[in-house]
């Protein structure tokens, strides 16, 4: 995976931007097959996702959880670790936030909300620490363990939400969290909530950790060259575990935001693969916090606009999935993009 780039210079932007353009071109072919005019379809896509303040708010709301999972995955990447477990981490984060949210109804907001958020982060961090420790101490590949931890998280939360914390309604969900634990809506009638502020803070914090602290220096050193890190007195094992904990804590905020800001409760299997989308977001964002923001907004926009496109044109919303898949394929085939555009540049 691409670990090299640290800054968002124009050269580093070539591949992500080129991939998006190419993916839209390939998508246009499918629009034609569906019997629509690509220009019309893409116009709808754009207008419905960025055309008004309200649609921008919806786009941002859709982007919020992707920012968290994208940041989480990117952070682990910087330490050379591939965290595929963001999905599980966000589920355990969500359930803990929900449990704290439906309990302690008499706490004031300034305590209750931070407690729910911190509880969720702690749960996600611990969840990710398990594969981190296994990797650091026993050399077990983190990809295997993060995937397996996802399944543990699914069934654990299934049990909790249908058993001890099943709410008063028939559906497999908890009760509504107390208003003191909710992330308030900041742009009605959309579901955009103060989670977006948390996301922006998380971007800044991740940036500072990675490039302005000695911890970030050590984590990135381990990611680039574990041999040299060890030589430089950096504990490879300790930093791997630390990177996984931070990665899991940040990723779990996606679940926390969904529970406290969007649904108001934990719903069984609520996530539309937000954790896995985070991998795509990190990849497209070149594992840079700012890149992750823009990649998440793009993916959020595609989902917002895609729904509208489905409604207003003959193009099914599945086109969005194709475009997303194409973006990932092109980003992964970065050498192809570089050559393609380099040749054009010469001609």
């Amino acid at each position: 995976m691409e670990l090299r780039q640290s800054s968002l210079s124009s050269r580093n932007l070539l591949v992500p931007l080129g991939s998006v353009v190419l993916a839209l071109l390939v998508g246009a072919v499918f629009v034609l097959i569906a019997g629509e005019n690509p220009i019309t379809a893409y116009r709808v896509l754009f207008v419905e996702s960025f055309g008004s303040v309200r649609s921008i708010a919806t786009t941002l709301q859709r982007a919020t959880p992707l920012i968290f999972t994208g940041l989480g995955v990117a952070f682990a990447f910087r330490c050379g670790l591939f965290n595929i477990g963001a999905e599980g981490q966000l589920y355990v984060g969500a359930i803990v936030a929900a449990i704290i949210g439906v309990s302690f109804g008499d706490l004031p907001r300034v305590i209750h909300l931070p407690m729910a958020v911190a509880g969720g982060m702690a749960a996600g961090g611990i969840w990710a620490a398990v594969p981190g420790i296994l990797k650091a101490k026993l050399g077990v590949h983190e990809v295997i363990n993060t995937i397996m931890m996802n399944f543990v998280a699914y069934y654990l939360t299934d049990f909790l939400v249908t058993g001890p914390f099943h709410g008063g309604r028939w559906a497999p969900e908890t009760d509504r969290v107390f208003p003191t634990a909710a992330l308030e809506r900041i742009f009605l009638p959309t579901r955009l909530n103060s989670g977006i502020i948390l996301a922006v803070v998380a971007i800044a914090v991740v940036y500072v950790i990675l490039w302005k602290t000695k911890t970030g220096y050590e984590i990135r050193a381990v990611g680039f060259n574990p041999g040299a890190a060890e030589y430089g007195g950096i504990s490879v094992a300790r930093n791997m575990v630390l990177a996984m904990v931070i990665s899991g804590a940040v990723a779990s905020l996606a679940g926390v935001e969904q529970v406290l800001g969007v649904h108001g409760r934990f719903i069984q299997r609520f996530s539309p693969d937000l954790g896995f989308m985070g991998i795509a977001v990190a990849l497209l964002g070149k594992n840079h916090p700012v890149g992750v923001f823009f990649a998440a907004v793009l993916f959020g926009a595609l989902r917002t606009g895609g729904a509208a496109m489905d409604r207003l044109t003959d193009v099914p919303r599945e086109l969005i999935v194709i475009i997303q898949a194409m973006i990932i394929m092109f980003v992964a085939a970065d050498e192809l993009i570089r050559r393609l555009f380099a040749r054009r540049g010469k001609a």
Binding site: K214, Y217, E218, A221, N225
Partner: peptide, 21 residues
Amino acid sequence: HKRGLILEYSVADNLILGLHS
């Protein structure tokens, strides 16, 4: 390359490897 330097780091960041904390 394997031990002494982190090739992706700047000269300045390599000059503090081991002194960085």
